[in-house]
Design a protein around this nucleic acid. Structure first.
Lengths: 246, 246
DNA sequence: ATAATAAAAGCGAGCGCTCGCTCTAAAAAG
DNA sequence: CTTTTTAGAGCGAGCGCTCGCTTTTATTAT
């Protein structure tokens, strides 16, 4: 899946489109035969799961809650998955697959310049997580407290994203665009800047912060952090604190 | 409580010291009479709660698990709190009280200079969250999925911390040390840089990242982001992406 | 010192309830 | 008619929480 040419993310990342991909990945476990029915039911179930879980947590969301919120009976739920953990894995799997596919396919015109690539990564990451906000919030909050394979999936996915950033930083240092003392650590610190958009979405919505403003702010910080330093900056004192803090 | 003069955070932020403050705040609910006994039991209970909850989540940690891990019977648990939610609130309350007390009391020599104050805030925040790492990880992970008063507490605490940073940034802009286009947004983005240290502590431990290196990296990014810009930086291309992404 | 007594703390089986999950009878679709 | 889907009562396990009882600790009387 490539995103080039899509004017709107909402089409390519609609619940139905994502659930169609989930169905492909979990054919063996979904007992509903007709794909149309299966996708429609999965969509209602997952929409309800994301809504309830992002409010009260996945573990605290019972299958009876889920049944009522989705309008699908207990039996109906269990013809779409074999147990509650599988439902979790369906969502986590779709998130990590999508993020690696999207971020792993930068447009040609961008890969030539590390700084353009960096800006593209920030912009694309924020817009992707906006289009799939409940999915990302869910994956972020629930990954910790679940089975080891799910945790490994989350950690691996995070590490992969970080490595994409590290690669670009490395290339920027190599061609002289960037000046970075610790590439791994810098790449690590870019991630939380991006994650804040969907983890604390409610706060930014309350403040009417636009995506464009957020992307610009993150880009400004990242670009300042990786920029070649021309001379020591005036007005910023670098003196250390007393020894009791070190 | 002020921290000035403490060589080690470990003393002032030991589980016992924190539990003594929790006992003060929840005298009415703790049915154990003697403070020494109450504090000792609270310490064992909360240590077990943090350990188990940070592995599997608070909701998934049963009181039987907690009883076994702490070596205190079911009845014993319920003489230290009246219900499971209160146990959660005890921990969240202690975290938010501590962070506002510590960050709200900067040493005199620091408040004069916004850049020194900023550096002190970053350093102190990271070292405080290191000293109370399981507490902060718990508060961060569990605040979302719990009762509305607990959520409000967490949101308020976060907002207060952010406001402390925004104040310093504002003063730095006022006296000409800093140049910032959107102070609120910049303050918002400093927080996740600090939170990453305790939210993803395992990753940094695996990589042998030291606190000093982390603090320096965050300070470098923050200082670059707020620094007065002398001229447009070379080597960093700022061109925008195609219209399909905007 | 020792024994008697009162107060405090600790214990854990058991209560009512909800959980994840199953299964069969009925409805709907083809 | 056959096949597929749905409905929702029911199951055992495990939950948060309680309460009657035992053990420990502190105080007083001898």
């Amino acid at each position: 899946m490539t995103l080039a040419g899509h004017r709107q993310l909402t089409g390519a990342f609609s619940t139905e489109a994502l659930c169609a991909r989930i169905l492909e990945r979990h054919r063996d476990v979904v007992r509903v035969q007709k794909p149309r029915v299966a996708i429609a039911n999965l969509a209602r179930i997952i929409e309800a799961t994301l809504k309830l879980s992002n409010r009260q947590g996945f573990h605290a969301t019972s299958l009876r809650d889920l049944s009522e919120a989705s309008g699908i009976s207990m039996g109906g739920l269990y013809s779409c998955f074999d147990n509650k953990t599988t439902l979790l894995l369906m969502i986590l799997g779709e998130v990590s697959a999508t993020v690696s596919e999207v971020l792993g396919a930068p447009p040609e015109e961008v890969v030539a310049s590390p700084s353009a690539h960096l800006r593209w990564l920030v912009d694309t990451h924020v817009r992707l997580t906006e289009a799939m906000q409940p999915w990302f919030a869910f994956a972020y909050m629930e990954a910790k407290s679940f089975p080891s394979n799910a945790r490994r999936m989350a950690v691996d996915s995070e590490a992969a994203t970080e490595e994409i950033f590290a690669d670009v930083l490395r290339r920027g240092v190599a061609n002289g665009d960037f000046e970075i003392s610790d590439i791994t650590l810098t790449a690590s610190l870019i991630k939380p800047l991006l994650q804040d958009w969907y983890v604390k979405r409610a706060k930014y919505r309350r403040r009417n912060t636009t995506i464009a403003a957020y992307v610009d702010a993150v880009c400004a910080i990242v670009e300042a952090a990786v920029a070649r330093r021309r001379a020591s900056l005036p007005g910023v004192s670098l003196e250390r604190l007393g020894p009791e803090w070190r």
